[in-house]
Amino acid sequence: MDEPSPTSDPASPTNQFGSLNDLAHELASLEDLASRGSWRSIVDKVSRARSLNLLTRPHDHLIYLSYNVLALSKLRRFADASNEINTLDDFNSHYYKYETYPQLYPNRSGSMIPFSLRFIHAQLPLKLGNRQEGLDRFYLLLKFIREKIKEKESNNLHDSVGIWKRRENFVLNCLIGHHLGDKEFSLCLDLIKDLINRDYLDPVLVSKLGHIQMQIGDIEGAKGSFNRVETMLNERKNDEYSFLSEVQFRNLVNRNKALVYLVGKDYVSAVREYEECIERDHTDVVALNNKALCLMYLRDLSDSIKVLEKALERIPTIALDETLVINLCSMYELAYVNHSEIKRTLNNWIIHVAPDDFDASCTRV
């Protein structure tokens, strides 16, 4: 799951300024570089701004530090990112509150720390091999988010409640992913069911419950979860689950159905479900990747390779996913004697079009 943007925080003073560049020095340029995956350029830009003393306000320093930490993390320079984030005091320090600087930020209060920085702070120990410390930080972040939700609810700040609930969901998904990696299924189920029992009906979360039930062999339970998602689609009101478009919601339902067929080794039916997804949205990389895998299981290597190659050709910025590339290279190895040459050609193309954080070693050249 991608890290949130360094400026994605309701505490950021976006409403007070006319443009991104008013929010922080040349912030529009930083956001543009991040959207293109130009992480090395961000590190260079931050270094230059600091050396020339271009950052004058407290939140300038914090936002540039956040982008620098994010860029270093994307470039897998986790020790450098950790050292950078450790230059800050306690996130709750008065140094990082707007009200400490009333002349600079009149009529503003609260923390300047972007949510993304709190998230990366939790994530870094896991990247550095300190699993328990990372999990501890994630659970502390979850506690922090839930306190914010209570605070916003008590003040009837409904828009902010929605933002913080999405963050709660985001962090929970990260925790679930880490526990899944260590096959701690009961913990994953507890985390999801806790949210669902509190009437937090997120169709993506209920789908993830079904995926976990599949992994532990509870096929009927998984089907029940997937049916619940389909019911949510059919019964939703106009503004319900607004974070999912109609197409995204319908594709989620089709992918859930396809997974049931996959487990039953009915690859033809699974392909049909994935094709429905692709017809609605040709950028659905999960459906494209899984359709190709199903074709491979059906011993149609030629078509499975075509599916992935066409995806990379049509939508390179979206389809350039390490899992998809690994699968394509595996298919090359199965299909062609001269697969090394074909993979080298793919690798050279990736080097020219991929963002800085793409791991080109996944081509196994």
Rank of each mutant, 00 (worst) to 15 (best):
V171Y: 00
C174K: 15
F249D: 09
L233W: 15
M232T: 04
K208T: 11
Y200H: 10
L252F: 08
K208P: 02
L187C: 05
N197P: 04
L175N: 00
D202V: 07
L191W: 00
L201A: 05
K183H: 08
N227G: 04
C188R: 00
N234K: 14
L233V: 10
R236P: 05
K183Q: 07
I176Y: 04
L252Y: 04
N254A: 08
L262R: 15
D194S: 14
E235W: 15
D182F: 05
L172V: 09
S186I: 13
E235L: 15
Q248R: 12
V260K: 05
I163C: 08
V171K: 00
L259A: 13
E230S: 06
V253S: 03
K237N: 09
G210R: 03
L259N: 11
K193Q: 11
G224F: 14
R198L: 06
V260A: 08
D239R: 12
F185G: 00
K237S: 14
R236E: 10
E235T: 14
D199E: 09
A222P: 03
K193C: 06
D182I: 04
F243Q: 09
N256V: 02
I212F: 01
L175K: 01
Q213P: 03
S245P: 09
M214F: 11
L201Y: 13
K183F: 03
R236V: 01
E246Y: 13
N169E: 07
K257N: 09
N234F: 15
F243T: 12
N254W: 11
Y241N: 14
N238H: 12
F226M: 12
F185P: 02
L209C: 05
D218G: 06
H179E: 02
H211N: 13
Q215Y: 07
L175A: 00
F170H: 12
K193I: 10
K208M: 10
S245T: 15
D182W: 00
N173S: 07
K257C: 05
S186N: 11
M232N: 05
K183S: 07
N254Y: 14
A222G: 01
S186P: 04
L209V: 07
I176W: 02
Y200G: 06
T231P: 03
L189K: 07
G224H: 14
L205H: 06
N197R: 13
N169W: 11
E246K: 13
I216N: 00
V247L: 14
L189C: 04
V204C: 08
R228H: 14
I163L: 10
D190K: 15
I212C: 01
N254S: 09
L172T: 10
I192L: 05
Y261M: 07
D190Q: 12
S225F: 03
S186D: 08
E235Y: 09
M214K: 08
F243M: 10
R198I: 06
I192F: 00
D194M: 13
F185V: 00
G177K: 03
F226W: 15
S242L: 10
L175R: 13
T231R: 12
V204I: 11
L201V: 06
S225Y: 02
K165M: 10
F249L: 08
N227A: 11
L175W: 02
N254I: 08
E246D: 10
D199T: 06
N173C: 06
Y261G: 05
D199S: 11
F170T: 12
E220V: 10
K237D: 08
L259T: 10
D239M: 11
L191V: 00
V260T: 12
E184T: 03
L262F: 10
R167G: 05
C188W: 02
F185E: 01
I216A: 03
R236S: 11
N234T: 12
